[in-house]
Every structure is written in structure tokens, then in C-alpha cells.
Amino acid sequence: MDPHRYCQERAAASGSSFYYSFVFLPPDARRAITAFYALCRELDDVVDECHERQVAEAKLDWWRGEIARFAAGAPEHPATRALHDTPQGRDIPADLLLEIVDGMAMDLDHPRYPDFKSLNLYCYRVAGVVGEVAATIFGGPRGEHDRDVRRYAHELGLAFQLTNIIRDVGEDVRRGRIYLPQDELARFGVAEADLLQGRDTPEFQALMQFQFERAAAHYENALAALPAGARRAQRPGLAMAAIYRTLLEEIRQARFPVLRARVSLTPLRKAWLAGRTWLFP
């Protein structure tokens, strides 16, 4: 199969909010971000779908070798081949891709996080770096804006990951993982058994409101950091932000039913939010 077709089908099948945010891009940038997204999905699936640790470790090691081949100009996997086939993709530093692999590997060793500081490293690797790479692919003004755009991208990536953590609390705990920091569980009086047994207590509601407020603050920080001159180029990220912020607010308004249900937006609503943001960034 053609590598770009493989990535397109991988992205479309996921139904992710990310897919809706970059359908408006010019062809070259759209192919690059679609390939990058497909690569991230491949890496994420290693840990989610491999139930034996040794198998997951072996696959992640293969991906480290594949990234080395990507850097050398000879990738083998359809996602990395498609990424290397685009000018924007070839410019991605291999070190950043390896950071993402290292982030996925943390799921093998860290089913719990003692505090937000330790969780922040995980979020940086699996989301902040992804944001930085995506912002580079989207392009826009360079030079004086670079530092601010990188800050925007990292803040936005963190906000996305915190939203995912809130949305997936029940699903993650059933997989044996708890991304809510342990010291915050203790502070709000929520036991792991409460999560495992789906107890929607007043203490759990207070804990989740705290998580909501932190995620919302990172969205605000991201948007405040983005220079006005870069907003047009970063429309795909802003479209993602519109979708994810709406999802976060939906979860809050539904009183955080995340222990037993997965809140999501309809494809039509995602497309509408993305289109509106693209037209009016």
C-alpha cells in the first residue's frame, strides 16, 4: 500500500479530533501532519495493545531503530516512509521522535505518578513534544516568534494530555493505570478503590474539578503565548484547541461521569468547531 494512503486511512479510522483539525491544510503540510499523526498512533498502540511487557519493549526498541533509519533516510514503516517523503517531515529532529518513544515507554514502568511534577515529564514527552513537532509542520513566521510558538505548542500539548487524562480516568484505571497524581488523590480523600469501583463521591467531584481547572489554565496559557502574527499558520492547533476545550467543558457540565462513561463529541460537531476556527482563527 502507498505509505500516504496508509497514513490517511490510519488517521481517518481513529475518529480523532486531530484529524478534523488538519483537513483544511495545504496538501504538503496535510500529508506531513497525517504521517506524523499515524506514527504517533503506531507508538501509542504498542503499549495499549501489547499485554506482555517483553513484547512491548521489543516493539519500542524496533521503533528506536526505525527512527535511526528515518534519520539516515531509509525508513521501513509506512508511517515513517510517508513522513520522510514530505519536506516538513524530513526536517523533524530524530531526538524529538525518540522523546515520544521514551514517553510511551514510561507507561510500562509508571502505572502511577506520585505528584504532578513527575506526571509533567510524561505529558511533555507524549504531548508537549508532539505539539512542538506539529507546530513546526504547520509553519508560519520564524525568527522572533520561535520561542513563543514553542511555548504555545508545549502548553497546548499539555492541555490536550490533561484533557485526555480527565476523559479516560475510568478506562485507564481498568487497564491498571492511574494518571491522577497520588498526592492529589490523598489531598481530596479519594482512594484507588473508589476509582476501581466507580464510586462517584463528592470527594471525587472535587478532585476532578481541580483537574479541570488546571487543564483550563493551560489552554489559557497556550493561547496567551501565541503571537498574533503566528495565529493564521497555527490554525490547525487552534482548531484542536476549540474541539478539546469544548470536550473538557462538556465533561465538566456532565459532572465528570468519567468513571463509567467516555464523553465525546459527534463528528459533525468536531467538523463544525474545526471549520469555524479555521475561518475565524
Rank of each mutant, 00 (worst) to 15 (best):
A222R: 00
A135V: 08
V129A: 02
A82G: 02
V130R: 10
E220Y: 12
T201V: 14
F24L: 11
L25F: 02
A32I: 11
G140N: 10
Q54S: 15
D194K: 05
L238Q: 06
D109C: 13
Y124N: 02
F212P: 01
R112L: 13
D172N: 03
Q209T: 13
R142A: 11
H218R: 15
R199W: 09
A186D: 10
R174T: 05
F22L: 14
C123H: 00
D194L: 09
A135W: 04
R199Q: 13
E249T: 06
G275R: 14
F256V: 13
R125I: 03
E220K: 07
I165C: 13
L196W: 06
D172L: 06
H51T: 15
C50K: 09
S21N: 10
I100C: 11
W272H: 14
T34C: 12
E192N: 08
Q197K: 09
D44E: 09
L39T: 00
G143K: 05
A230R: 06
W62S: 09
N164K: 01
H110P: 05
N164W: 07
D91A: 15
R142H: 06
R177F: 12
A127V: 01
A79H: 00
N164T: 02
P78A: 08
A193Y: 01
A29V: 15
P181F: 08
R232K: 13
K270E: 00
R177A: 10
T34P: 04
H4I: 03
P257T: 12
F22E: 03
E9M: 05
Y37E: 03
F70R: 00
C123E: 05
G89V: 03
A230K: 04
E57R: 06
L98S: 04
E49V: 10
D148I: 05
D115H: 15
G229L: 15
R214A: 11
S21Y: 07
I100L: 10
M240S: 13
A82Y: 06
A271C: 11
Y152G: 07
G275K: 07
L268A: 15
G65D: 01
A230T: 02
A68W: 06
I165V: 12
E155D: 01
A271W: 13
D115E: 14
A12N: 07
E132L: 10
I33F: 00
R81P: 00
F18N: 04
V129D: 01
A241W: 01
D44H: 04
A38R: 00
D200V: 03
F280C: 11
E144G: 05
V173Q: 09
R262P: 02
R255L: 10
C40Q: 04
E184V: 11
E76S: 13
Y113F: 11
I166F: 12
P181N: 07
R175S: 01
E76R: 11
R174H: 12
F70Y: 09
L259F: 03
R81N: 00
G131P: 07
F70C: 03
I251D: 03
F188I: 04
I33K: 00
A79P: 02
E144L: 08
A35R: 00
A233W: 06
A13V: 01
A230C: 08
Q8G: 02
R5I: 10
